[in-house]
Design a protein around this nucleic acid. Structure first.
Lengths: 236, 236
DNA sequence: CGGTAGGTTGACGTCCCTCAAGTATTGTGG
DNA sequence: CCACAATACTTGAGGGACGTCAACCTACCG
């Protein structure tokens, strides 16, 4: 598992590392692991002493409520850094699960932090990571607070399309590993209503569900659903 | 304006600074400023080269949507660091306004970053700040996605009570600078419905609105509104 | 003293939820 | 390969939470 060959490297938190620095990062790594679809990667983020770089696949972070409902707080894709383990201690208890088969690099939080601390210019990557965290948090907040169900689903689909390496040569077919139940818990509606919305988008020709958790999409028709809100806030 | 006397210092991002370090922080400061209630502190966060420490008062960060609606993304109180200017470059355009009369210390982003970069142990404060940012983002997400209007208003009030120095000697009277319109835009409902909810809480004896933007509250009755969701996620 | 910003109330409409009963689709053991 | 279960998705009918519009009230400020 050479870091040099890792296609997630350019998106990783230590993306600016090279040569001996990359060697130190590899030294700090405990091991490379694989998780099955649905497996728990982190059980309680606030207490985890480990952090991960996601090499391939998708994962999601969520909180459970007293009445059993689940609120999805974030999605992680290739190159993303989970958890914000460096920020451990939050009073909002959240866990991370694999959405697809996933491979990760596991680090002890303190030793990765130590490497970054030794090499000032690695902090650029940390700042970039924090910016994208912040941006995603703002987008989620807008999606949940200001969008109706159809707009929210459209913006969620577009986010996945954008993040999964925009340009597949094959038109506009993108992987989309979410079930209706996950969509529902991400945007704060019920599974049944999520189903009606997705079906509606399909009938309108904005999306088409294909075998193997993939989606053919019509970006223009999806964007059209966001016309009401898109001008200032740049969702999608 | 001596930093030693500042009551916001213990909550500031450079809270671990002392002696000569604090001197460097004060050197990096451009000036201390005051903003009137409602005044714009940062017009476009993504482009701001300045960052602020809030010395006194309350402020809020918000985004505007194409159809004129406003989504409040965060509230800032005494000691908070605005903006995430160090993370400038987000594609979600947001601005910051004063909620009350506000005094701030203004810094050039790069010079404050440079001070922190020179003194490794100051980074503890940055990490603490990022943790609380993350925690607040999660709470907002839960509030918007999983709570109904009454629960959301109760959790918002409790957040303000908690953050405004919990223990005023005078029972449970807390400053609460939000109008119905701001409450509505924070939790994603209309001003009119927010009015109905607040009125309902008042009639139920959970809160009482006093002169001067203050609130007398009955913590138990407010907490009771969150029973359905509180067990796992620790809102409030 | 009038103007303005903030708050209240009612009637009615829409969006989303709930419950119930289905139909694919996938996986598993024989 | 089939039988069977489990999971995911679909559809309809009825209800509740929240939005919309319009009217009115109150406090504050110049």
């Amino acid at each position: 598992m050479k870091c040099e060959d890792c296609r997630a490297r350019s998106a990783a938190i230590y993306c600016t590392a090279a040569g001996s620095e990359l060697e130190e990062v590899a030294q700090a790594r405990l091991r490379v692991e694989q998780f099955e679809k649905g497996a728990m990667i982190v059980a309680d983020e606030a207490k985890s002493a480990h952090v991960f770089t996601l090499r391939s696949g998708w994962a999601y972070r969520y909180a459970l409520l007293g009445d059993g409902r689940r609120q999805i707080l974030d999605f992680f894709g290739e190159g993303d850094f989970l958890t914000l383990g460096m920020l451990a201690g939050s009073r909002v208890r959240s866990a991370v699960r694999a959405l697809t088969v996933v491979t990760v690099c596991r680090f002890a939080r303190e030793s990765l932090l130590a490497v970054i601390d030794r090499h000032p210019h690695l902090r650029r990557g940390v700042l970039a990571h924090l910016r994208s965290q912040q941006e995603r948090a703002d987008r989620r907040c807008l999606r949940l607070g200001a969008l109706n169900a159809e707009e929210a689903v459209a913006s969620l689909i577009l986010e996945f399309a954008r993040r999964s390496g925009a340009e597949d040569e094959d038109g506009d077919i993108v992987p989309f590993p979410l079930t209706l139940s996950l969509i529902a818990d991400a945007i704060g509606i019920t599974e049944i209503h999520a189903g009606r919305i997705v079906r509606g988008l399909e009938r309108a020709g904005a999306i088409e569900r294909l075998k193997g958790n993939r989606l053919r999409l019509d970006p223009d028709r999806l964007q059209a659903r966001l016309r009401r809100v898109d001008i200032v806030a740049a969702l999608g």
